[in-house]
Computed example of a mutant assay.
Amino acid sequence: MPVKIGTRGSKLALVQTETVIRKLTALGIGSEKVIVSTQGDASTQVPLHEIGGQGVFVRALDDAILAGEIDCAVHSMKDIPAYRPSGLVTAAVLKRDSAADFLAHRGAISSVKIVGTSSTRRRAQLLRHDPDIITKDLRGNVDTRIRKMSAGEYDAIVLAEAGLTRLGIRIQGERFPPEKFVPSPNQGTIAVVSRADPSLMEVLSALDHPQTRTDVAIERAVMEQLGGGCFTPLGIYCRAGHLIAEVLSLDGQRTERIETDIKTIEQAREQGRQLRAGAQDLIDDAYKKLGIHA
C-alpha cells in the first residue's frame, strides 16, 4: 500500500511534497499525493491573524490524517502550531534550507518605501530598521505576491528565501541576515506529520535530519513558553545549538532579545520563560492592538 501524503495545493506546497516523494522513492517506498484545501488558502484577502494565524494552513490536513483519509502531510514547519492534536506526531524533519527572509524589490533599494507583508514580525523588523517604511498587507502564493509587486502595488515584498530556492525563482533583492532579522521559528524547514502509527513512523523516520530536528525543537520550546503565535512579532532562530530570540513591539521600536548557546530542551524552555518575563508587556500590547483574546 502506498503512503498517502496530504498537501495544500499551492505551487510551493506541491514542490515540497514532491521533495518528500522523491526521497521516499529513493528508499523504495511508494507514495500517493492527495491535495487538501485549507481555510488559509481560501481566505487570501484577510490578514492571517484575523482567521487564526498560520495554523489555518494545517488544520484541514490534521483532520484528514485523524479521519484516515491520508497517512501523513507535508508542511512548512513554521506553519505548525505549538499545540497539536493528540494522535499526531512529527514523524520526520528534513534538513533545513535557508531560514532567512528575502526582500525582493523593484528598482533601487534606496527607493523602497512601500513593502508588502502579512507578518507582524516582518513588519516590526522592517519598521525597526527604517521607521519611515510603509507596510501593507500582502497575502497569496509566491507568484501572486511577485506579480502584485511587479504591477506596482508595492515597491518591495518580503519572502522566505527557502521558498524562492525551492521554486527555482531568481529575483532582484537582498537577503536579510537571520542574526539581525530573526526569522520565524522553524522557517526554512519541511516537516512530515503523521498519525501515531509505529510502523508508519518508522518508515518516515528515514527522512529525518537529527541536527535540524534538534535546532527546531529548541526553537519550538522557546515558542511554547512565549505563546503569541504569529500574532506577536517574535523571531526565534537556532543553528547548531546557538539560539537567538526576540520579541518586538508592533511598531518595531521596542525589543526584548536573548542570544545564548543551548544544550537541552529544558534550557530552551527556561530561556523562553525569561524572555517572556521581560517581554510580557509587548505580548499583551500586541494582543490588545490586534483585538485578539489571549
Rank of each mutant, 00 (worst) to 15 (best):
M1L: 10
V3S: 09
I5S: 08
G6T: 11
G6M: 14
T7P: 00
S10W: 04
S10K: 11
K11Q: 10
L14A: 06
T17N: 09
K23T: 05
L24Y: 04
L27T: 04
G30R: 06
G30Y: 04
S31E: 14
D41L: 07
D41C: 03
A42M: 14
V46K: 00
L48D: 15
H49F: 09
H49D: 10
E50F: 13
Q54I: 01
G55K: 08
G55S: 12
G55N: 07
F57I: 00
F57E: 00
F57Q: 00
A67G: 13
G68A: 15
E69Y: 05
D71L: 09
D71W: 11
C72D: 02
S76Q: 14
D79S: 11
I80N: 05
I80C: 09
G87E: 04
V89P: 08
T90M: 15
V93S: 03
L94D: 12
D101F: 07
L103V: 08
A104N: 03
A108K: 05
S110W: 07
V112M: 02
V112G: 03
I114Y: 02
T117K: 00
L127K: 14
R128P: 03
D130L: 03
D132L: 04
I133P: 04
I133F: 13
K136V: 10
D137K: 00
G140V: 00
V142M: 00
V142F: 00
R147E: 00
M149Q: 03
S150A: 11
G152N: 05
E153K: 01
E153H: 12
A156Y: 05
A160M: 03
E161Y: 04
E161C: 02
A162S: 15
A162I: 13
L167H: 13
L167C: 14
G168C: 11
I169L: 13
I169H: 01
R170S: 12
G173A: 13
S184G: 09
P185E: 07
P185G: 05
Q187V: 03
G188I: 14
G188R: 12
I190R: 11
A191T: 06
R195K: 08
D197F: 06
P198C: 06
S199I: 09
S199R: 15
H209P: 03
Q211W: 04
T214L: 11
V216P: 02
A217D: 02
A217M: 01
I218V: 15
A221V: 12
A221H: 14
M223L: 04
G229K: 05
C230Q: 10
A240T: 02
G241H: 15
E246Y: 11
V247T: 01
D251N: 10
G252L: 12
G252T: 14
I258P: 12
E259T: 03
T260N: 13
T260L: 15
I262H: 12
K263F: 10
T264P: 03
I265V: 14
E266I: 07
E266V: 08
R269Q: 05
Q271C: 07
G272C: 11
G278Q: 01
G278M: 01
G278L: 01
G278Y: 01
A279N: 08
A279C: 09
Q280Y: 13
L282R: 06
I283K: 01
D285N: 10
K288D: 08
L290G: 04
I292T: 01
